[in-house]
Amino acid sequence: MMKVNGLYAEEIPRVKTISKKDFIENYVKPQKPLVIEELTKDWDAYDKWNLDYIAEVTGDKTVPLFDDRPASSEYKFNEPHAKMKMEEYIHLLKNEPTNYRIFLYSLLKEVPSLQNDFSYPDIGLKFLKQLPFLFFGGEDSKVFMHYDIDYANIMHFHFHGKKRCLIYPPSESKYLYKVPHALISREDIDFSNPDLEKWPALKKAKGFVADLSHGEALYMPEGYWHYMHYKTAGFSMSLRSIPKKPKHLAKAAYNVFVMRHYDNLMRKLKGQAWIDYKDEMAYKKTHQKNKLPF
């Protein structure tokens, strides 16, 4: 275990390739993360997928954009902050700093030809073939610490440049200042440079870290928290497989059918006061659980 920006994090194991049996027995069943360096080597995407190519084949598509503004009552769950033509957005990524990101966008559905550039890995997970999502970010842009609503097993492939992934298993939630009725930690925590005097519970959290390069794949088990830091402009694709543990399936169902609708209703009824209340409770409950002053 080493320290990354003052946080305890273990380097995620790496393999060049792995058999289906070894992957299931040693990583999926025990729910341990893994980087597979050459899983995409036989894909056309390995040679083709860069920002110029994406601009060429998707440039006329209008895409939803998110920035790093904190949650507010103004926006619903996963509602974009802006929209832009893809060719304009990629020009922005390549030429100047920007906090605008593409998050959970089904560009592959919008541009079916992209689906010819990759195949679903035969690695023992049954991937949901209607849900490959793409994510884009500019140099030094960051994705706040969160976990996914469906508690899926995720295979996360990175292209064009480098990206740092800091992840935590669900067992570490009690240290991460989880916001109630949400899938995020406090958004005012900078996990690239955390203030451990202000957020002391983070000192107890034990996570994992990996720096992904072009074509590498990160396996994130069910319900893992993840914080993404684009070291350069680039993009990633995630493939998802439904959770295998019954308790995680139950949590996914609650998140999808109850939690997000309740949160949107309370935002509508109480406005910013609801957001502020949740942030306050994230701090208070975390410190109560860890016997820290608040």
Rank of each mutant, 00 (worst) to 15 (best):
S119K: 13
P246E: 07
K203H: 02
Y53A: 03
N99S: 05
I123W: 11
I184D: 09
K41C: 09
E87R: 13
G215Q: 08
Y105N: 05
R260W: 08
Y27K: 02
K29M: 06
L92T: 13
I90H: 00
Y168Q: 10
S19P: 05
M1H: 15
K206D: 05
V63C: 07
I275R: 07
G59Y: 14
D52P: 04
D148N: 06
R267Q: 03
K41E: 11
E187Q: 15
Q31M: 11
V28L: 07
L131P: 02
V28C: 07
W274K: 03
F235I: 07
W49V: 03
Y230F: 12
A253I: 09
G223R: 03
D44H: 06
Q115L: 14
F294Q: 03
E139N: 11
K178C: 11
S192K: 08
Y227M: 00
P70L: 07
M281V: 14
P169A: 13
V28K: 06
P64T: 06
T98G: 07
M1A: 15
A217S: 14
P221E: 09
N255W: 01
L176P: 00
S236W: 03
F208C: 01
D276G: 06
A71V: 12
T40P: 13
H146G: 15
N116R: 14
F294P: 00
K285A: 00
D47Q: 13
L34A: 12
D276A: 08
H181E: 09
Y227D: 01
D276F: 06
P169L: 11
P221I: 06
L166F: 04
G161C: 01
P293N: 10
K203L: 05
A252P: 12
E96I: 12
G161K: 00
K245P: 02
A182R: 15
A250M: 13
D60E: 15
K162V: 02
R69F: 05
T58W: 09
G6P: 04
Y175W: 11
K129G: 02
Y224V: 05
I123A: 11
Q288I: 04
E56V: 02
V143K: 06
E172D: 10
P170Q: 10
K231N: 14
I123P: 09
N78P: 00
N255C: 01
D263N: 12
S106R: 14
Y8C: 07
Y175I: 10
K3C: 10
F294V: 06
Y175F: 15
S241F: 06
H156D: 03
F144C: 04
N95E: 10
D44Y: 03
M1N: 14
D148V: 01
A210C: 02
P132A: 07
L212G: 01
